[in-house]
């Protein structure tokens, strides 16, 4: 028992684990909330695209010695607006617009990074992130950005909800639908950037989608889904950090693996939609 208490307390004796916990929790919190909209609106690929395309911005920043975070941010904002613009103003479908932005940003990023001497290591750093190397300044920054996104969502909750559910009707009600249709992808983009340090470009999608998908299996109404999503995201973060610390595994992937485990558990055992209960509840047809 003392072993267990030690195992629970030990990680937080290290400052780097405290910073990792804060940074990853901020990221998980904002991802879980934004992720609910992402899952409902089928925007998962958009989040992934913004993450990948911001490699270009990160590379520019890296190349010229600027801040990686602001580089990614400066790229993600126009990229997410461009995706919305292309899909709204042309007859191209959204996934096509996403594909173009996704690949072009990533290509520019790789070209720039290949000019850096220690190409692979640096590229790996950007692709997979490393929350263990996060500084207090970065923790603060992630917290601020996550806070701004959450404030925006809280303030515009009913409009975002209405527009996500029924854009035509919400436009008819005088809600600025165009603005919101640009805003939501923008929030997804900013959320993605805030989470890059925690899980990196490749895995940010998991943080965005998995908690929300788990929640959609657990709850029926939107507020419930939001709550479950946040709880799932935070549990995955804390448990992922423990797993990473005690089993000595890379941190970002550990968080994602725990979140995926929770999703599978919900898929099987969710009270209302779990496959196990559904199987059990199936009423046998009367035999002929």
């Amino acid at each position: 028992m003392i072993d267990l208490i030690d195992a629970v307390k030990e990680p937080w004796e290290f400052a780097f684990m405290q910073r990792a916990l804060l940074a990853a929790s901020f990221a998980a919190l904002v991802c879980s909330v934004v992720g609910v909209f992402v899952v409902l609106r089928g925007m998962a690929f958009m989040g992934d695209a913004v993450a990948h395309s911001s490699l270009a911005g990160m590379s520019v920043a890296y190349f010229f010695g600027g801040s990686i975070f602001w580089g990614a941010f400066a790229w993600a904002v126009p990229a997410s607006l461009a995706i919305t613009f292309i899909s709204r103003r042309t007859n191209l479908r959204l996934d096509t617009a996403i594909g173009i932005i996704f690949a072009s940003g990533f290509a520019v990023g790789i070209i720039l990074m290949s000019q850096v001497n220690n190409y692979t290591a640096d590229l790996f750093g950007l692709l997979f992130g490393n929350v263990l190397g996060v500084s207090w300044g970065e923790v603060f920054l992630i917290g601020i950005v996550a806070g701004c996104v959450l404030l925006t969502i809280t303030a515009l909750y009913k409009e975002l909800l209405f527009t996500a559910y029924d854009a035509t009707m919400s436009a008819a009600s005088g809600i600025p639908v165009s603005f919101l249709q640009y805003l939501l992808p923008l929030l997804v983009g900013i959320t993605t950037v805030a989470s890059l340090k925690a899980v990196g470009i490749v895995l940010v999608l998991a943080l965005l989608v998995t908690p929300a998908a788990t929640a959609a299996l657990m709850a029926r109404r939107l507020p419930g889904i939001m709550t479950y999503s946040v709880v799932t995201g935070l549990i995955a973060t804390v448990a992922g950090l423990y797993l990473s610390f005690h089993a000595d595994l890379p941190t970002g992937p550990s968080i994602v693996v725990v979140a995926t485990g929770m999703f599978l558990a919900a898929l099987l055992f969710s009270p209302s939609r779990g496959m196990v209960w559904q199987h059990w509840r199936t009423v046998p047809l009367p035999s002929e």
């Binding site: 996500a164 029924d166 939107l222």
Partner: peptide
């Protein structure tokens, strides 16, 4: 058919949306 009927809102939520304006 233009409404997303899989959206996780209740009857009461939808009626309330009529008052958002």
């Amino acid at each position: 058919e233009l409404v997303d009927w899989d959206f996780p809102v209740t009857v009461a939520d939808v009626a309330l949306m009529g008052l958002y304006s």
